[in-house]
Write a protein that binds this DNA or RNA. Structure first.
Lengths: 228, 228
DNA sequence: GACTACAGAAATGTAGACAATATTGTCGAG
DNA sequence: CTCGACAATATTGTCTACATTTCTGTAGTC
């Protein structure tokens, strides 16, 4: 896996991971209801652990829990979507800053290896792997930046980005292709901080530009607002 | 309370809040064991809900859960402590940037009101209130910056800062006094972005400088490392 | 025909009991 | 007296059953 430190304990983390992946792959649509018993059966765990996982996912913003109603996949509005991308640009800029100052040649090799995995998955058409790896590239950068805190923030941001792209972009599924990642690696190899930051900003801007954030998407739950 | 949006549902959030406050007030020491049954009795809730709260706190980094062993208050090392303050300086800088651009006079009044509350608590010597309000000032800034995401990150950062100061600073209890907050407000009132950012950086640096981050504090659990 | 009230179904929230595991204390051998 | 095995205790992890709440479908009334 692409994260160095598990932030949540074993079994709970696995459930969170699988639900997150399902959301990122659009297998779970925003607003979809997450029945505890159903999840417990699917993952073959107790309902208690499902509830723990849902509580964590709620604190991550991926799931919304309504008391006595149940858990639903969150439906971030356009303002929240813009907010996420705005912050993400800031955070990834800080990651690049730190990264360039301290990365070693061996670690750059890790980036190359990751990029190869991305390309292979791209050729195979392995959607699940593409999504994991394209997000994982950014997480790897954060990990190599040496700040577990930035890593955690970025992990959260990428999860939400996946959710947002699932809502506001219809055509493509993956977040970002390997090409821009390649040119970013080249800047890092040359320790070109300004260039790397410029590419990263453009890269994230491309992802954001493909979204349609002009109008609010009617939410599944707030029918009154959607149909009023 | 000082947060605009609850990220976690009702009862679970309340438990997280109370545990967090206990940690910030040093009533719960780093490394302290958190027995589920005990917590359930104290908060008068079911053990299941305590487990949910602990899972959330773990994902926030305030609590460490060891399988089949239990939950403990986290004990961040010196490198993690430096990391938190480094990121916090970056995040709070972004908060100030956004804040100055969009704050209204009415909202500045909110800052003044908050400052008055801080001063009153300071005169009363109300430790619990001082801790809540001094952190709350920074959270209010994030809230007024209009980014719920930055708010969430800062909330996390402040929690960890409290934990870190609890470990690495013996003398003072509060994180930051109201005086520097006052001069920060003055810069905001004048829309002096550069000045505000300078004061904020200095403010956070003061807090960090009072910590003793030169040597690793022996952890309660890793006795082998502490006593070896 | 439309609206309200009520009953049934389904899902969540909670409590309790039981099993698995780690720690602690005790006994005995050397 | 020290070390190691073993039993006792305490705590976590899990499952089951039940109470509570919400949603849905139906019947009754105007």
């Amino acid at each position: 896996m692409y994260h160095s430190k598990e932030t949540v304990t074993g079994a709970t983390a696995e459930i969170c991971e699988r639900i997150w992946l399902s959301i990122a792959e659009k297998r779970l649509r925003p607003g979809a209801r997450l029945k505890e018993e159903q999840l417990a059966e699917i993952f073959d765990v107790s309902r208690a652990r499902v509830r723990q996982a849902l509580a964590v996912l709620e604190s991550d913003g991926l799931v919304t829990i309504v008391p006595n109603r149940g858990a639903f996949v969150s439906e971030p509005g356009v303002d929240e979507a813009r907010d996420v991308f705005h912050v993400r640009k800031q955070i990834e800029a800080r990651v690049i800053e730190r990264l360039i100052d301290r990365i070693t040649d061996e670690e750059i090799q890790l980036l190359d290896d990751h990029l190869n995995n991305e390309r292979e998955a791209d050729q195979r058409g392995d959607t699940s792997a593409i999504i994991r790896l394209s997000g994982g590239f950014h997480l790897l950068l954060a990990e190599l930046a040496g700040s577990s805190f930035l890593f955690g923030i970025l992990r959260d941001l990428i999860s939400r980005s996946s959710l947002i792209t699932a809502i506001y972009r219809g055509r493509h599924l993956h977040n970002c292709g390997p090409d821009e990642h390649a040119s970013l690696i080249e800047c890092i190899r040359k320790r070109d901080k300004a260039g790397a930051m410029r590419i990263m900003q453009a890269h994230l801007q491309h992802v954001e530009d493909e979204l349609d954030l002009t109008e609010e998407v009617p939410t599944t739950r707030d029918l009154r607002q959607a149909l009023g």
